[in-house]
Design a protein around this nucleic acid. Structure first.
Length: 431
DNA sequence: TCTGGGGTCCTAGGACCC
DNA sequence: TCTGGGGTCCTAGGACCC
């Protein structure tokens, strides 16, 4: 049995954590540069704010309903996520953190008669200790656990609920009923492209989907579609992976708030981004063997694009080494075909763990203590306190537009919330 | 005026090898 | 008239996810 613990409207809930006055106020959270809506509270959903819509398109609606707007505050969300996962980990031995707001939990470590009790308790304790509301879905496979969670969130099939926020699909009858209730496009792993294909064949619900033959599924979908089909029938096809291997790639990508034409300014941005990118590699404890830079201009299909790759003889995450590589790549791209740059993407592939480093025969090992020191200083005194080759003013460009960012309540001493207890105190002292 | 950022896996087709 | 058979590796693009 697998449980999926999923935080409800995670970013919006994080913003509410330190603003209890907003508990019933509609909230939206915006993407980088305050571009799109990436999270909505229930109230905002009810007001008809779609997911992923450009902010300017709903600005009028936001004003009319006095929706509270936040720029994304990943420092805060990352820390709250860590707390949620920690609480789950304290109570369940096998946890696979799937995303910032979701975790799969192996419930087969508990005996069958306490699954329900455990799920309800888990939900309650996350609320008590962290203050984030979650939904828990239980099923025999990851895909069924997802499905159960979906039922809770969409308020469908209350007969499968156990208290608010927990649903269990355990018997065959439960499963069939759940599959009949859910549209095939709402199944985890079946996206927009497949829905059209399925509907033209008269397949609308998840139950219709599992009625198809194995051959037919294999013929019209890739192996991933077939696995979903199997999972919905209770066969494990997606392994439970509590300790995920090192990632395949690490990407750092930013849209610029304005289109840049000057080579000097583009180089500057690349320099700034390289430092954050290298920091990200170190944080993930990997060295890159291959790095690439993509500069793109404009939106839509017909935008210019320049790409360069570099293979590193000795895999690295050292800012100084990466700066040289990215500066060279940037110069090459810009010299071949200059165009207005609207987006910069840095990527690393062929990653190796920092636990092992393959050295070149003729090169001395890198001195890591300097980078460690750099990271410690920047962590303590704020990002960009110590930099390579750019001024503090330039470094500020990094975050683009963030007009509505909340304080980093839990990770910056200077932004700790202040609680005024003077009134309470005076009452006590009078007594 | 204004449109995010970060991932995974799979497949087809080309280049190349013996 | 008639032109093999079996591989590997790489890349781009599609599909999907949060």
């Amino acid at each position: 049995m697998i449980a999926l613990v999923d935080c409800n409207n995670f970013y919006a809930s994080c913003e509410r954590l330190f603003r209890p006055d907003l508990r019933h106020t509609p909230i939206i959270v915006l993407s980088n540069n305050d571009g799109c809506v990436v999270a909505r509270s229930d109230e905002s959903k009810a007001l008809g704010i779609p997911m992923g819509v450009p902010f300017f398109e709903v600005r009028e609606l936001v004003g009319r309903h006095q929706i509270e707007v936040f720029s994304s505050n990943y420092t805060l969300y990352g820390d709250i996520s860590r707390r949620v996962m920690e609480v789950i980990g304290e109570r369940c031995p096998e946890v696979e953190v799937y995303s910032i707001d979701e975790a799969f939990v192996d419930f087969s470590v508990f005996s069958g008669d306490i699954w329900e009790e455990k799920a309800i308790e888990l939900r309650q304790v996350i609320w008590d200790k962290v203050g984030i509301p979650v939904s828990v879905g239980l099923g025999q496979t990851k895909t069924l656990a997802k499905l159960a969670n979906h039922l809770v969130k969409k308020r469908k099939l209350p007969q499968l609920w156990l208290g608010q926020g927990v649903a269990v699909i355990s018997t065959v009858q439960d499963r069939h009923e759940a599959l009949r209730t859910v549209q095939v496009g709402d199944v985890w792993g079946i996206g927009r492209a497949s829905v059209g294909k399925l509907q033209s064949e008269g397949i609308h619900t998840a139950f219709d989907f599992i009625q198809c033959s194995s051959q037919w599924i294999r013929q019209y979908f890739t192996i991933t579609g077939w696995r979903t089909w199997r999972e919905l029938q209770g066969h494990h096809e997606l392994p439970f992976n509590p300790a995920p291997p090192i990632p395949q790639s690490v990407v750092f990508s930013r849209s610029l708030s304005e289109c840049l034409w000057s080579s000097k300014r583009i180089q500057q941005r690349v320099k700034i981004f390289t430092q954050s990118f290298a920091e990200k590699l170190r944080h993930k404890q990997v060295y890159a063997s291959q790095v690439s830079l993509v500069l793109s201009g404009g939106y839509g299909e017909r935008h210019n694009l320049g790409k360069r790759n570099r293979h590193l003889l000795v895999p690295s995450n050292d800012t100084r080494i990466l700066l040289v590589e990215f500066e060279q790549m940037c110069t090459e791209i810009l010299s071949s075909n200059p165009f207005g740059v609207h987006r910069v993407t840095l990527a690393a592939t062929e990653l190796v763990s920092t636990n092992v480093q393959q050295l070149s025969l003729f090169q001395a090992p890198t001195n890591h203590s300097i980078m460690q020191l750099l990271d410690r200083i920047n962590q303590k005194f704020g990002r960009g306190t110590m930099r390579v080759g750019v001024t503090p003013k330039e470094m500020k460009h990094l975050h683009g537009r963030q007009r509505f960012r909340s304080p980093r309540y839990t990770t910056r001493w200077s932004e700790l919330p202040v609680v005024d207890i003077s009134k309470r105190y005076s009452v006590l002292s009078e007594k």
